Simulated assay, not measured.
Amino acid sequence: MAFDRLLSRDHTTRLRLTRQLMGVASYAMFLLPGSLAVRWGWARFDYVGLVALVATALAFNVAFFLAIRTGFSRRFRDPTLLLPQILVAFALSLVTLHYMRGEARSVMLMLYVASFFFGLFTLGTWQLLQLAGVAVAGYVGLMAFEFHGRPLDTPEFQLELLRLAVLAMITSWLSLVGGYLAGLRTKLGERRSALQEALARVQELSERDELTGARNRRYLMQALEKERARAERFAQPFCVAIIDLDHFKRINDRHGHAVGDEILRGLCDHVRRQARDLDLLARQDIDTAFGRYGGEEFLLVMPHTTLDGGLACLARMHAATGAQRFSTQAGELSLTFSAGLAQYRAGEPVSTLLARADAALYRAKSLGRNRVETAGP
């Protein structure tokens, strides 16, 4: 638990800190080969020098950790501070190599190359080649410092040239491989994003009525179950209304199904426009609360709404629809609807709630249509 708090709850910061701690672990692993080199006399420093070197590395890493953890690093172009961490690793590795004797330097040279791995799966080809150049230049600088004033036609210097050539070859090759991997990672990320967008689109289409673009019955039933669970948990009211277009069959028979389809689409657009002006529906997205229930029937879900509030909302919507003229290929047509409204009662299934709203709708139609009725027990 304490470790989790140390790493921050922010996902991005946590990821950066995790990677940074991996670098700290690599420094800690250096203790074993460093201790062996001291013990067997391959190093020109003792255990105190080894501890001082590791302590210096840890001090730098603590500074990097705090800069990332506190958010200070966000003011820089690279908030991960990757390049500074690699450069510090290069510098510490060069110091270690300077104090190694004989063949121990060839072995420890692998630690110098290991510093390169920090950016292998993050940086691009050009950036990695630049780092390879820095690594080679650093080793050239170390050679210049160590052989200043000394003869160069010696086996010792030739061995250093061999190490330099191997270092240049390995880092250059790693740069090309790392750049290739970075390209693959980018492509995979793009394909993953495209796949996620496609899945979201498929999900969206599966929840939409093909004709009107409104939410379909499948989505509405899921939304009702969620609203019921919320109401049970927090003891908050909500209402549902089943809306049925009056004499819709007459429109289809007189003007054709194409005009009927235009009326259905027009009603959905009209409800969306009206809902923006209704205070009771301003608390939530109308697109998630209204949809086609089946045929010419529509369902409206009103969260946080009592029966009186729902009745006032439907009355305003009913009046606005009656005054609206819907443009179709057969000309402008008027339209009315009947609606049944029911308020959720604690413990009742969604099917019972809908049955009560449907019974209220049937009563509205039997009383002459073009009206709103509320459900009883």
Rank of each mutant, 00 (worst) to 15 (best):
F3T: 11
L6K: 06
S8M: 08
T12P: 03
M22V: 13
L31S: 14
L32S: 04
S35C: 11
L36S: 09
L36Q: 08
A37I: 11
A37H: 06
W42Y: 15
W42N: 14
D46G: 15
Y47R: 07
L50D: 03
L53Y: 13
A55M: 13
A55K: 07
T56G: 13
A57M: 08
A59M: 13
A59V: 15
F60P: 03
N61V: 01
F64R: 12
F64C: 07
A67H: 04
G71R: 05
F72P: 00
S73T: 05
R77M: 00
T80S: 15
L82W: 00
L83A: 09
I86R: 02
L87P: 00
L92G: 12
L109M: 15
L109A: 11
L109H: 03
L111T: 09
L111C: 08
Y112T: 04
F116N: 02
F121R: 01
W126Q: 07
Q127S: 13
Q127E: 15
L129T: 01
L129F: 04
Q130A: 08
L131P: 00
A137H: 05
Y139N: 04
Y139Q: 06
G141D: 07
F147W: 15
D153T: 08
E156M: 12
F157R: 09
Q158Y: 14
R163P: 00
L164A: 09
V166C: 09
A168Y: 09
W173A: 12
L174M: 15
G179F: 07
L181N: 13
A182T: 01
E190N: 11
R192W: 02
S206H: 01
E207D: 11
D209W: 08
L211N: 08
N216K: 09
R218A: 10
Q222P: 00
L224Y: 12
R228Y: 00
R228Q: 12
A229W: 03
R230G: 03
R230E: 06
E232M: 14
R233K: 05
A241R: 08
I243E: 02
L245E: 05
I251P: 01
D253F: 07
R254I: 04
A258V: 12
V259I: 14
H270I: 02
D277A: 14
R283A: 15
D287Y: 06
D287F: 10
G291N: 09
E297M: 12
L299G: 02
L300Y: 03
L300P: 00
V301N: 02
D308L: 14
G309K: 06
T321D: 03
G322Y: 00
F326V: 05
Q329R: 14
L333T: 05
S334R: 14
T336W: 02
F337D: 10
G347L: 12
L361V: 04
G368V: 10
R369T: 04
V372A: 04
